[in-house]
Amino acid sequence: MIQEEIITELKEILAEEFPLLVSTYLEDANARITRLQSAISASDAANIRVEAHSLKGASSNLGVSGLAELCSRLEDCGANEELDGVDSLFSQIQTEFTAAEGCLKQHLN
């Protein structure tokens, strides 16, 4: 669910700023998930694509690869304007994010 070797490298690179990175990511991801939800309710394919793309990039940089993978699929749906099944993808994303949040918070201690 989380790539530990990426977390290790980030701790080395950011040193004392690592906790700030994690909290920034979590805040940002939360905001994007909220915006994703509105885009899906409005069947706004373009915004689904943009938000999913950003969340995918940020998540992959934090080693949250499961979430990045789900976002990638959602991004494709937005790009191809095929919105069947986006609701199910979105609920998987929410579940995955909650789990990742728990994992990352553990690294702050």
Partner: peptide
């Protein structure tokens, strides 16, 4: 230039180092 703040933080740290 990146719209994710967390991404900017990571790149900034690498380049600063």
């Amino acid at each position: 230039a990146d719209d994710n703040e967390s991404d900017r933080m990571i790149l900034s740290s690498i380049i600063n180092r």
